[in-house]
Design a binder for these strands. Structure first.
Length: 110
DNA sequence: TGATTGACCAACT
DNA sequence: CAGTTGGCCAATC
């Protein structure tokens, strides 16, 4: 599996995010060895809708817990609904207790 | 083929 | 304190 690109690795990590947990683009990028490639993670999420397997992109937010990519879920409230469905609380497009529900791949997979 | 942009982040000015 | 810059990789113009 060395033919996989950056995107594929992002999918792998995102799919590993446990229920009710969230992570940030930067954390994933950092885990992949590229702290500056956080933007690509977002781009990968956009492509994730065309990916073969479903990817819980709603569990990926920016480092502030802001639902920056909610627009890309088809509906601006879709991401919020999905997160609330997992027991999270969202207010003003921001995850409450974000730190508490933060799942860092560097912490869990290290 | 070169330039620009994109769901970001951290450091610098 | 706010605005700018550099960094990373891939897709689009």
């Amino acid at each position: 599996m060395e033919d996989i690109s950056f995107f594929q690795r992002v999918y792998e990590v995102v799919k590993l995010i446990p229920y009710g947990k969230v992570t940030s683009y930067g954390a994933i990028a950092k885990y992949l060895g590229s702290g500056g490639a956080a933007r690509m993670v977002g781009w990968a999420m956009n492509a994730s809708f065309s990916a073969r397997e479903p990817t819980p992109a709603h569990r990926v937010v920016n480092r502030l817990g802001l639902l920056t990519g909610k627009q890309h879920f088809g509906s601006p409230d879709m991401m919020k609904q999905l997160l609330e469905n997992e027991g999270l609380k969202i207010e003003n497009d921001k995850i409450l207790d974000f730190k508490k529900h933060f799942w860092d791949p560097n912490m869990e997979l290290n």
